[in-house]
Simulated scan of single mutants.
Amino acid sequence: MDNLLTDRQFWVNYWESKTGLSVNIPANYLFHKELTTIVQTQKVRTAIELGGFPGYYAVFLKKYLKLDVTLLDYFVHQPVTNELLKANNLKESDIHSIETDLFNHKETQQYDLVLSCGLIEHFNDTTDIIQRHIDFVKPGGTLFITLPNFKAINGWFQKSFDRANYDKHNISCMDPALLADICKKAGLEVIQSKYFGHFSIWLENEKQRSTGIKLLKKSLWLAGKVFTKILPFNSRQLSPYIILEARKQK
């Protein structure tokens, strides 16, 4: 079975459908606490974001944590990334960009921090894609992976109202125990592998959806937010994300 659930044209179409990509990345960007703790406690100096175009996390790491950052993706439209850098008062030279197929790229450099946010779930072979991340990690370095949790209510919403997008995701990999086991078998120390976030749902290109779907989404979002404000906890049923943090042995 083909390992890829998407191809380059899918991502070209995906990003070309987006507007307002050049945003100011805030200091409290999603996963900011986790990333800041890793950088400060592990004395991180270099980082690479895999599959991260247009580079929101690369920008966050450069802007707020002052790292030497590289962005690798097999679709990088440099003018978009440059506009993003400009919106965050950064120079074009502040982030190194590599446009390449991760499966054909032979990287000789390794990094203190290797991260991807919303990448591994687009591949059928989870062990293989995680190992490709690990190959970039320096001895003693940190692997940080996040992905959506489509086994939660958000997944039901995606499956019901955006089946085409849902089918581009490997649902079976959305399992913290599975991800931890893969890393342990690869010789890494697992720091955490868990469901993350109290509640959220979303739709791609929401503005193009019918009024009924948008109203349903808003109603579910509000109900979920109220419920998890009263009872805030991470769970498979409600949490919108999964995070994995692991460390390579020195």
Results as ranks from 00 to 15, higher is better:
Gln9Asn: 14
Leu85Phe: 09
Leu215Ala: 13
Ser193Pro: 09
Ser200Ala: 12
Lys138Met: 05
Asp128Val: 00
Gly212Val: 05
Arg163Ala: 07
Trp221Val: 00
Leu85Glu: 08
Val59Asp: 01
Asp73Leu: 04
Gln237Cys: 01
Gly118Thr: 03
Phe199Gln: 11
Trp11Cys: 02
Asp175Ile: 07
Leu21Glu: 10
Leu90His: 06
Glu99Ser: 07
Val44Asn: 05
Val23Cys: 01
Asn205Ala: 12
Val190Gly: 01
Asp162Arg: 14
Phe144Thr: 03
Ile25Cys: 06
Thr146Glu: 11
Leu231Thr: 11
Leu143Arg: 10
Lys217Pro: 00
Gly140Cys: 08
Tyr166Thr: 00
Phe10Ala: 02
Glu121Leu: 11
Gln131Lys: 12
Val12Cys: 06
Lys62Val: 10
Lys86Thr: 15
Phe136Val: 02
Ile145Ala: 00
Thr126Ala: 13
His133Phe: 12
Ser210Trp: 12
Gly118Pro: 07
Gly140Val: 08
Ile95Thr: 07
Ala27Phe: 06
Leu35Met: 15
His96Ala: 09
Phe31Ser: 00
Asn234Leu: 00
Trp221Thr: 15
Gln158Tyr: 15
Asp175Asn: 15
Val137Met: 10
Tyr166Gln: 01
Lys225Arg: 14
Lys151Ser: 06
Lys18Asp: 14
Asp7His: 04
Gln249His: 13
Lys33Cys: 03
Leu35Gly: 02
Ile120His: 08
Val12Tyr: 11
Lys217Tyr: 02
His32Asn: 13
Ile48Ser: 02
Ile130Val: 15
Asn205Trp: 03
His133Asp: 08
Pro176Asp: 04
Gly51Pro: 09
Ile120Ala: 04
Leu178Lys: 09
Lys225Phe: 09
Asn89Asp: 15
Ile243Tyr: 11
Ile98Ala: 02
Ile213Lys: 14
Phe136Leu: 11
Leu90Ser: 07
Ile213Arg: 14
Ile243Ser: 08
Phe75His: 15
Ala177Asn: 13
Pro232Tyr: 11
Val190Ala: 01
Lys168Phe: 06
Gly51Leu: 10
Gly20Asp: 10
Leu4Ser: 10
Gln109Cys: 04
Ser160Thr: 11
